[in-house]
Amino acid sequence: MVALLNRPWIWSFVGAAVVFIGALAITGGQGAGGMVTAAFSLALFMVVVGTGQMFVITLGPGNVDLSLPANIGLASAVAMKVMDGNDVLVPLGIAAALGSGLVIGIFNYLLIWALRIPPIIATLSASFIIQSVDISYGRGLQIKPPPGFADFTNWQVPVGGVGVPVMAVVVILFSIGAAIVLQRTVYGRSVLAIGQNIRAAWLAGVRVERVRFLTYALCGLLGGLSGALLAGYFRGASVDIGNEYLLASIAVVVIGGTSVAGGKANIPGLWGAALFLVVLQIMLNSYHISAGVRLVITGLVIIGVIVAAGGPKAAR
């Protein structure tokens, strides 16, 4: 129990539970099942995007991908256009979205590596360019997703009265895979080593640039994937479909116990943090309070969780 409490990510689950109970208190316990279903359905997107962001942030101070929202927006448009409302073209559409994300990830890495631009600014500049591409490519795009694809992304299997979103189960499996990659593969170990001390990693034989390349490419790829899935879930693409994931992707990573200083990553925490943020939004919406107050409360709660999770300075 003590060991469990010492794990930083436990706080994100505790936070999610507290907010959930708070939300139920308002409704008097009504709609708990529906809320759980909704929470998982939305949290899974944060987890997919957050996983990419987590690998990037784990590379060490300064590494972050700010191009994710633009990436997601463009990928959603690409997926919808390629699928063209036709169920047969779904795999092709997903492949195209992944490709779009991958290209963006590689472009980000090239800016960082070849031009030596700090990642924050490189990915930000890239996101400006992607946005323009998206605006010009996706202009007037009104294509609906193929019905089969839209149904799949919204598919729920009722288990004991609660609808279990199939996609959430898939993403949980994906998270387990990501955890294995992180701890048990040469790539994952290399990411953790680079995040702790990039020079020492190089001198210990880690192929630093190859790993950084793979990481930005992976993050781009996951952005592309979420773009396609989001377009299916919300039944259509849009330029700003990914906007909330700029802050959300960073927030879930850090609230989930991954170190911003790099070298320490945490996958279960992503789920806790994503559920926490989603349930919080659902609760605030059910209060029917003004946008201003909602923003203030969201901000204060994020800070509150971080304060609760972070310890005081070590005494040395």
Partner: peptide, 11 residues
């Protein structure tokens, strides 16, 4: 509290 400023200022 030794907090990451990125997250606090994000909030």
């Amino acid at each position: 509290r030794d907090l990451p400023s990125i997250v606090v200022t994000l909030g």
